[in-house]
Design a protein around this nucleic acid. Structure first.
Lengths: 350, 350
DNA sequence: TTGAAAGCGCTAACAG
DNA sequence: CTGTTAGCGCTTTCAA
């Protein structure tokens, strides 16, 4: 037998009988609607009653059941956000801004993970729609036709973020990943790079950027001539890691590929390439240029400082939040597709 | 006037009249309870009826309103997770594991941000409790007495994670940050380090680790004698960044402090210290040892590889999830306080 | 195997 | 200023 001065067993689940408006009303000697009013429209209640009700509310620790109110009003003050994954997600800066905004507006955020292959997107949808959220943000596109229909039938405002296209389910905030790829190609070409290694992530967006890059390199070569550019592809996992960056450069060296620029699927991967270069005493940028993607907070702190692509991710979060809240409040959105663009940040690795 | 082949205006909020059980029942020519049963307890319904109901459900695109069901059953299948912030959060690995587990168990996760100073904790609580979640995970401790009471009165299972103590609101999974500080001190002392710079985060846990470190260094000095060890404190923001690591080492050098080890509040900060050392050609670990905290995925990839403190953060997420789901299903938790411990990972920077 | 009735906790609409 | 009535969409209870 052991001596314990502390509880060895938790309260098990909902124990305390839930306190309802009724309980408060009885205790305060008024009707329930009066209590409701005291809480929601205190100006309609006499000072005296108000005081008594509030006292009882505090005493009993009454907290209104929002489920009931939501059921009645058919507004849940809930917004759902769908992400591929939480861990290692490059979307967190936009998530942060989004959450701050909608929370300030009095909404709560439910999170769902779809997987990078969107495999869970549809199965999540029923349970999401079932909660009657006032809005849904989906990172990436809604892929299946069934899912599109469900969302449209439900009449829930939807914003698809981080990509852009001309066929949104409802609204859309993002940018063209294809254009990013092309811009990076232009940038590296201008720096006289001709032999590229592409670390490509296993996700739609990464592949779009890679496609844009390839396309543009071919165009440039057709236009300006010179020896045929090289373009080697290396796959990296998503969410991407520093480790995969090191592995990629190690592989490039091992295969003795002629490469003068590594184009990375993320700043993490780029950081890994830089570490591997450092370990192998490869001079960046003179021997090898390294291009990141995302302009993460550490990108300006690496040695040498990382050249990368800056996405206005905070704008994504902010726009999506504003659109959704506006919809929830019955306003019309006149501009349902927003392209927030991107820019090349030239630092020291190119 | 412009020509537009695409919509220039979004669907504005809840438009489609919500389809209810009633609609389905009418269409299928049965009572609503039969539809309800067909959906939830199909074994109680004849094959023929079942088929017809399912057909109508599909045709109408009916999605059950969980709000209503939850109201009746008083179970929301909702779990709330409170975090200081999303962006730069060192807790994401445990969040990921947690979400995977509870999602598999059929629950959804609502996210709330409390701020590192817990300033939003209490204000969030009403709206959280109002939704009658089946469980709440709180990163860190519940600070205010009022908040503790509210949670306890509500009878919602609560797990406080990432710290450990003997007075949980309900349940607790974490480890002693004080012990981490002491262990790090032991480790560095054994490596003959005596002049320490501590990069301390502005959060409770960081301060606890710093306190443990200081305490242990004093003990060791008392025990083994020798010249008085130096211990300089530098503040870094939370969530911490690589940049603040660079700044910290820059400041140490600028102030010409005799320092042979930098103890960082996170691996991010440590990475920054490494970059600054690289930029200044300071030899790590011979001139300067660098100790991280967190064993982030990149810690093994830095050059030189980062020595750090590994937290079993996935265990935190998993334990919290299991406890909460067990509670939600009415099981008793016999071990409400779980210490998941930590370990020192010796790599190359010390 | 199916259905009718009651009610979860709250608020809107209409009295008093 | 306060109260009564009805009903949100569903499930539980009891009955057929």
């Amino acid at each position: 037998m052991t001596t314990q001065s502390r509880p060895t067993q938790s309260r098990s689940g909902p124990s305390a009988q839930n306190i309802t408006l009724n309980d408060v009303a009885k205790e305060a000697g008024v009707s329930i609607i009066t209590v409701s009013r005291a809480l929601n429209k205190p100006e309609l209640v006499s000072k005296k009653t108000l005081a008594r009700v509030k006292a009882v509310v505090d005493e009993l620790g009454y907290v209104p059941n929002l489920l009931a109110g939501n059921l009645k009003s058919n507004r849940s003050r809930l917004i759902v956000m769908l992400l591929p994954t939480i861990l290692g997600s490059p979307f967190l800066r936009s998530v942060q801004v989004f959450m701050d905004y909608v929370t300030d507006a009095g909404y709560q955020v439910m999170l769902g993970q779809t997987g990078y292959d969107n495999s869970h997107q549809e199965s999540l949808l029923d349970v999401i729609i079932g909660r009657r959220p006032d809005g849904v943000v989906i990172t990436g596109r809604v892929t299946s036709e069934a899912a599109r229909r469900k969302l449209q039938v439900a009449g829930i405002p939807v914003v698809e973020v981080w990509e852009i296209g001309d066929d949104p389910v409802d609204m859309m905030v993002g940018f063209s990943h294809y254009a990013v790829g092309k811009a990076v190609a232009d940038y590296l070409w201008a720096k006289d790079k001709r032999n590229f290694a592409l670390a490509v992530g296993h996700d739609v967006r990464g592949r779009q950027r890679a496609a844009g890059f390839k396309q543009r390199v071919e165009e440039l070569h057709r236009e300006f001539g010179g020896p045929t550019p090289n373009l080697y592809r290396y796959s990296v996992q998503v969410p991407s890691t520093v480790g995969s960056g090191r592995d990629t450069l190690a592989q490039i060296v091992r295969e003795q590929k002629e490469v003068d620029a590594v184009v990375c699927s993320s700043d993490q991967v780029a950081a890994g390439v830089l570490y591997e270069a450092q370990a192998r005493q490869i001079d960046v940028p003179n021997q090898l240029a390294v291009m990141g993607y995302g302009d993460m907070d550490f990108a300006s702190s690496t040695v040498p400082a990382l050249s990368t692509v800056k996405i206005n991710d905070e704008e994504i979060g902010l726009n999506a939040a504003k659109m959704l809240i506006a919809c929830a409040q019955g306003e019309k959105i006149t501009q349902p597709i927003v392209d927030i663009g991107f820019s090349i940040v030239a630092r020291e690795t190119v």
